[in-house]
């Protein structure tokens, strides 16, 4: 028998998270350009709506009204599938991320998280990897050379950062002893944020999420100056927008993931959220959003500061620097745990 209350709660949470992600994407596309403008002594979009606030909507309308071109030599089914294969996982990933302290409504505890599955971490890693298939498919199915190079690069990129990323997370799993994000956050609430205990892992993870989301300095798969947009060269109109949106969705998820793993999730230091009741929940959500926003800002800052890696240099960085460092981190963590007993 399905509990009506639970069902309703889940539906509301799904809607909130889904809409929240989309609004987040819209804010990000605007923030990206405004921050870039701020960095580069210019204004950025400030005409549409209230000081440029409606620019993302104008962009969306523009994408909808553009002609949708499918190249003659493209493999049509795969060409149509690719944007979906990128977009759907990107929007699904956020489901396991807790975005606030558990809430009490009518005597029942509601977790502020769409799905509390017991392999939350693996779920995120798996879904973000599926997104890469979309990029490879997009690159290959267009039947054109520049996208193909972009697709090749994205698969090369995948194998160079994923291992280090996974190993970095293993350190966190080892000390917190759980695969769900709730466990990891609860552990951090008790003993302090993981950034103090796993600085190396945090460092590796921070680097790899840039590669994960194809952002500068690792945006080799797009590289508009070399590959003319890489895997999405041949895409137009809303199919292109889907790649664009999923990049931002991935960024939001990756930033939230980073916050959950190393910065206590929704935890506010020195404050017991549970004791504050409703305000505590609000505070925890605000804390989560604030931390996530900080990492998103960092994303933008890095993009407009650093040059781009070459793809063999990224592979070198991944295999020769990040991977040994991550292994070392796992070893050290194990050693400390063994000594402590």
């Amino acid at each position: 028998m399905i509990d009506m209350f639970e069902l309703l709660a889940i539906i509301i949470k799904v809607l909130v998270v889904f809409a929240g992600t989309l609004v987040g994407i819209m804010i990000m596309t605007l923030a990206e350009r405004r921050v870039a403008g701020f960095i580069q002594y210019r204004l950025g979009p400030n005409r549409v709506g209230f000081g440029g606030m409606l620019q993302p909507i104008a962009d969306g309308l523009k994408f909808f009204s553009k002609e949708d071109v499918i190249p003659g030599q493209a493999n049509r089914p795969l060409f149509l599938l690719a944007p979906l294969a990128v977009m759907i996982p990107a929007l699904m990933t956020f489901a396991v991320i807790p975005f606030g302290a558990p809430m009490e409504i009518a005597g029942r505890v509601v977790k502020l998280q769409v799905a509390d599955i017991n392999i939350g971490l693996l779920y995120i890693l798996a879904l973000t990897s599926i997104g890469v298939y979309g990029l490879v498919l997009a690159g290959w199915s267009a039947g054109s050379k520049y996208p193909q190079l972009g697709g090749l690069r994205s698969s090369a990129q995948l194998i160079s950062y994923e291992l280090a990323m996974g190993l970095a997370i293993i350190g966190v799993i080892m000390i917190s002893g759980g695969l769900t994000l709730n466990q990891i956050i609860a552990y951090q609430q008790e003993t302090g944020w993981n950034i103090w205990k796993q600085p190396i892992a945090a460092f590796i993870f921070l680097i790899t999420i840039y590669a994960e989301t194809n952002r500068l300095p690792f945006d080799l798969t797009e590289a508009e100056q070399e590959l003319v947009g890489g895997y999405h060269t041949e895409y137009s109109a809303f199919k292109f927008a889907m790649f664009f949106l999923s990049e931002y969705a991935n960024m939001i998820t990756a930033a939230a993931f980073m916050v959950c793993l190393f910065f206590g999730g929704w935890d506010v230091p020195f404050i017991d959220e549970a004791a504050l009741g409703g305000w505590g929940v609000l505070l925890s959500v605000a804390s989560f959003l604030g931390k996530t926003a900080f990492f998103l800002f960092l994303y933008i800052l890095v993009r407009w500061t650093l040059p781009r890696f070459r793809y063999d240099q990224l592979m070198r960085l991944g295999w020769k620097f990040l991977l040994p460092l991550a292994l070392l981190n796992v070893f050290l963590t194990g050693l400390v745990l063994a000594v402590k007993g």
Partner: peptide, 9 residues
């Protein structure tokens, strides 16, 4: 071309 757009501006 190497990706550092800000230098350009």
């Amino acid at each position: 071309d190497i990706g550092a757009f800000t230098v350009f501006l």
